[in-house]
Amino acid sequence: MNPLPFIVASYAIAIIVPATLAIAALTRMRRAERRLRAIDPRAARRARAGRHK
């Protein structure tokens, strides 16, 4: 049995699943930061200070 399709499928799963988790976590984090900045003046000030460092 040619193992190549099994190897390719394994690597695809092992790359796609963590990449999807990472992108979802990053998107959720950025959205929360943006929403917090919109209603909390302290968070907005901290973000501005961080950008000007």
Partner: peptide, 27 residues
């Protein structure tokens, strides 16, 4: 590499959860 990646994903999710909770309290 996978261990550091796992730590980064969990940290980003935890950071998002803390910010979401703070957001809920503020609202």
């Amino acid at each position: 590499g996978y261990s550091l990646g796992f730590a980064a994903i969990v940290l980003a999710r935890l950071r998002a959860a803390v910010l979401e909770r703070r957001l809920a309290f503020l609202l």
